[in-house]
Amino acid sequence: MAETITQAARILAALATAFGLTLLVILLAHQDPQAALSALASGAFGSPYAIAETLTKTIPLLLTGLGVAIAFRARLWNIGGEGQFLVGALAASALGAYVLKSLPAFVLIPLMLLAGSAAGALWAGLAGWMRTARGVPEVISTIMLNFIAAQLLSYLLHGPMQERAHAQPASEALPLTATLPSLWPGTTLHWGLLIALGMAGVVAVFLFRTRAGFALKLVGANPEAARAAGVDVAETRLTTMLWSGGLCGLAGAVELSGVVGTLYENYSPGYGFAAVAVALLGRLNPWGIFASALFFGALNAGSGSMERSAGISANLSYVLQAITLLVLLAFQWIRWTPRRVIVPESTP
C-alpha cells in the first residue's frame, strides 16, 4: 500500500516537473502560457465534442501502449509499434477497401480487425523469431522493421493499392460497411473505444490470471530461473512478441476503420513511438496505461486547438510528450539507483 502511494507520488512529481519544463518552453518561445494552457484545456475538455476528440485520440494510444507494455514486461524492447501499426492498417485496408469490400459490415469489420492484428503479430513475430532463433536484439530488428513497413506502405500506395484515379499516393477509401460505427453520434468517437477498453481487460486477465502471463513475468524477471523452473523461455518470448505486435496491428486497423478510412504515406503520427511513453507512464499496468493514454490523448486533442486559437504550434504536444518520457525515465532512475548498490550477500 505504502509502495503504491509512493509510486503515485513519484508519477505526480514527474508530471509536475514535465509540466513546469513545458511552461518554460512556452515562455522561451515568447508565448503567453496562460492563453496556451487555456486553449489546451478547452481543446481537450471544453465541450462534448472536445471530450469525444480526446477519447478518440486515446484509442490508438491505449492499444499500442498495451502492446508495447506486454513486451516490456518480458524485458523485450519492442520499439517497432510504429511498423506493426502500419502493417495492421495495411492489412485492414486491403481487406476492407479491396478484397472483401462487398461483404456485409458485421462480417467485414471483424475480419479487418483480425487481419490487422494478425499482420502486426506477424511483423513483431519476425523480430521475435530472429531473437529466439538467431539472437538478433529485438531493439534493432523492430526499429529496422519500422522502416521496412513504411517503405512497404509507400510502395503499395504508389502501386497495387493506389486509388482508382491515380492522382495521389493514397489507398481507396473504405466503404461505409467497413467503417466502425459511431459511439457518440455527432462526434468523432467510434466503437474502437470499446474495443480498446476490452483489450485492456483481456491484457489484464492475460498478465495476471493466466499461466502464460505468469511465465511472461518470470522470463522478464529472471530468464535463467524461468528455465530452471521449466518455462520454455524462447517460446514465451515469441508469443509475447506476437501479442505485442497483434495489439499494435489492431490499433492500426481500428484507427483506419474508425477515423481515417484512407491510407496515405505518413499514415501514423508516431503512435507506435508514443506508445513507449504511454506504457512507461502507465507503469506497464493495463489500467495505468488507460489513464496515461487518456492523458496523452487529451494532450493531442488540446494541442490542435492551441494551435488554432493561441497560435502555438501543435508540435508543442510532442515536446511535452518527450519531456514527460524523459522526466519519467529520470525518476525511474532515481528509484532504481539506491537498490543497485546493494551487494548480494554472498561474494562471488
Binding site: 518470470l218 529472471n222 535463467e224 530452471a228
Partner: peptide, 8 residues
C-alpha cells in the same frame, strides 16, 4: 541466478 526471480 537460477533459483529466484528477485524482483518478483
Amino acid at each position: 541466478r537460477q533459483g529466484l526471480a528477485l524482483t518478483l
